[in-house]
Design a protein around this nucleic acid. Structure first.
Length: 135
DNA sequence: GCCAACGTTGGC
DNA sequence: GCCAACGTTGGC
């Protein structure tokens, strides 16, 4: 099982909406590196749900319930989406400031590749963030 | 609101 | 195929 981090602007798609909906296609990715990560995902993989821009914190965990398929919102048919399911919220959301301040997390793509919206997370980083988040 | 980083577009 | 111009993302 692999771990990921997926960004969403809460104005567009928030954690609260994800929880209410349960399962939702993760559409709108138009970046090749992010799309490559989507294609690498397997059913059962887990991902942090991160609020970019407004919030800048990891607010919950989702799981991948359907592997990559053609994004219905993409007219060119080149990009893909996956279906994600809300698993559980972070008891204590982990902020970007916390991630930046933590020596164990300083190499995360979240910091180094700040514009990448779908990114891999190592198992060590995953466990550490879960601990910080109160899980 | 500004700006750095990065991706895309289009002229050559 | 190069690169300047421009658009977008996302932190501050």
């Amino acid at each position: 099982m692999a771990f990921w981090l997926m960004k969403s602007e809460p104005d567009v798609w928030s954690w609260a909406q994800q929880v209410k909906k349960g399962i939702e296609p993760w559409t709108g990715v138009r970046n090749h590196q992010a799309a490559k990560n989507l294609r690498t995902m397997a059913v059962g993989d887990k991902a942090f749900f991160y609020h970019s821009n407004d919030g800048r914190e990891i607010v919950g965990i989702v799981s991948i319930v359907k592997k990559a398929y053609t994004d219905p919102s993409d007219e060119t048919g080149k990009f893909v989406c996956v279906d994600v399911k809300a698993e559980k919220p972070m008891p204590k959301p982990v902020t970007l400031a916390q991630v930046k301040a933590d020596a164990k997390l300083k190499d995360m793509a979240l910091i180094k590749l700040s514009r990448l919206s779908v990114q891999p997370v190592s198992e060590a980083e995953w466990k550490h963030i879960c601990k910080l988040g109160g899980l």
